[in-house]
């Protein structure tokens, strides 16, 4: 169930647009934020009800955009390491391997305690401070193995 707070945020979003459907992306973001960073079928059905859409239409939107975690639930900390060109030129691959070792999981997996999900991602627009990664909303830039160790230690 969406919380009252979420529902009122969705109502707020509707004011930005001339059609209800435009608020679909905001609604999904709001729903995901309050469900430990995941989108559930129930949430999509509720959003469909609010916006006058069919649940399959909401699902079609949710599955198109990669930041909605629909079929790929993520842990408490969603780590996304950039693997695109500028980060790669400065050693992203080694950092990804290092992360796998430290976390004891392969890229794409979540630790058994559901704390960390490790993924790779395409360019995040932070190429001048490559290599970089994003954990939940935050960017971590100019990474080294030592920096990564310190960041993970803080979160553990």
């Amino acid at each position: 169930m969406l919380s009252d707070k979420a529902k009122s945020e969705i109502t707020e979003s509707l004011k930005k647009y001339t059609n209800k459907r435009s608020a679909c992306m905001d609604a999904l973001r709001i729903a995901q934020a309050e469900a430990s960073n995941n989108i559930t079928k129930a949430a999509m059905e509720e959003i469909a009800g609010i916006l006058g859409m069919k649940p399959v239409e909401v699902n079609a939107v949710a599955t198109f955009y990669t930041m909605y975690n629909v079929k790929r639930p993520v842990g408490e900390y969603h780590i996304q390491v950039c693997r695109n060109i500028s980060c790669s030129l400065l050693g992203a691959e080694h950092l990804i391997k290092h992360m796998e070792n430290v976390l004891g999981i392969k890229t794409g997996a979540t630790t058994p305690d559901n704390k960390f999900t490790l993924k790779t991602v395409e360019c995040l627009g932070s190429c001048g401070t490559a290599p970089m990664m994003q954990i939940n909303d935050d960017f971590y830039e100019s990474l080294t193995k030592e920096k990564i160790d310190a960041i993970l230690k803080d979160l553990k």
Partner: peptide
């Protein structure tokens, strides 16, 4: 929400329309 193609101007419009 994570789709490069939204930078193409007409895809961007589709995205705003939901």
């Amino acid at each position: 929400y994570g789709a490069y193609i939204c930078g193409e101007e007409t895809a961007l419009l589709e995205s705003i329309e939901g």
